[in-house]
Computed example of a mutant assay.
Amino acid sequence: MSEAVEWALHSCVNLTWLEPDEAVPAARLAEFYRLPAAYLNKQLQALARAGILTSAPGPRGGFRLARRPEDITLLDVVTAIEGAEDAFRCEEVLRRAPGDHEGVDYRKGCVISQSMRRAELAWRRELAGQSIADVKATVEKRSPGTPGATRHRFANLRT
């Protein structure tokens, strides 16, 4: 997984602390993290295409959540950034081993392929079972000053 997933998840959580009609420009979010604006904007656009964020043009424009935090899973964000393909793709390397392989689908019969598929499903279930709201609640419990500090920092960034 690329670090873009981490930036996207943090951005979504930080956007939960904005006022409902407030939006943050990509440049301001990028400055918040000390990232190149073009890099973060690419991730934010992917989130917008996936219906996780919405963007508004103009002087008061920027990005905000398109759905309630309870309705955005961690898997939604990962999939928006990384795509929906499985992390492990069985290439059926056993076909190269000695023996007759005609008509055998190793993706179904290979123990390694089956093990990796089970792990992938467990990982996806775990991510699908946690929402941005869940992460937000945990952050607020562990560090109650984070929402206010985040809003303050966004308000005082130069961009």
Score class of each variant (00 low, 15 high):
3 E>A: 14
3 E>I: 14
4 A>Q: 15
4 A>F: 15
4 A>W: 14
6 E>H: 15
7 W>A: 10
10 H>P: 07
11 S>E: 05
14 N>E: 09
15 L>G: 00
15 L>Y: 00
16 T>P: 01
16 T>C: 15
16 T>F: 08
16 T>H: 09
20 P>M: 01
21 D>F: 02
22 E>G: 02
22 E>T: 08
23 A>P: 00
23 A>W: 00
26 A>L: 05
28 R>Y: 09
28 R>D: 11
29 L>F: 13
31 E>P: 08
32 F>R: 14
32 F>W: 12
33 Y>P: 11
34 R>S: 09
35 L>E: 07
37 A>K: 12
38 A>K: 08
44 L>R: 09
46 A>Y: 07
47 L>W: 00
47 L>I: 01
48 A>F: 00
49 R>I: 02
51 G>A: 06
56 A>F: 14
56 A>Y: 12
59 P>E: 13
60 R>F: 13
61 G>F: 06
62 G>R: 07
65 L>A: 04
68 R>I: 06
71 D>N: 02
72 I>T: 03
72 I>Q: 01
72 I>N: 02
72 I>M: 01
74 L>V: 01
74 L>G: 00
78 V>C: 05
78 V>I: 06
79 T>R: 03
79 T>F: 00
80 A>E: 02
82 E>G: 10
83 G>C: 11
83 G>T: 12
85 E>K: 11
86 D>A: 13
91 E>I: 09
93 V>F: 14
93 V>N: 10
93 V>D: 13
94 L>P: 02
97 A>M: 12
101 H>K: 03
103 G>T: 05
104 V>D: 00
104 V>Q: 02
105 D>A: 02
105 D>H: 02
105 D>K: 05
107 R>C: 04
107 R>D: 01
109 G>L: 09
110 C>F: 00
111 V>Q: 11
111 V>Y: 04
115 S>P: 08
116 M>T: 13
117 R>V: 01
118 R>E: 15
118 R>A: 15
123 W>P: 05
126 E>W: 14
128 A>G: 07
129 G>D: 04
130 Q>P: 02
135 V>I: 07
136 K>P: 00
136 K>S: 06
144 P>I: 03
144 P>K: 07
144 P>D: 08
144 P>Y: 11
146 T>D: 03
149 A>R: 13
150 T>V: 15
152 H>G: 11
152 H>Y: 14
153 R>N: 13
154 F>I: 10
156 N>V: 14
157 L>M: 15
159 T>W: 15
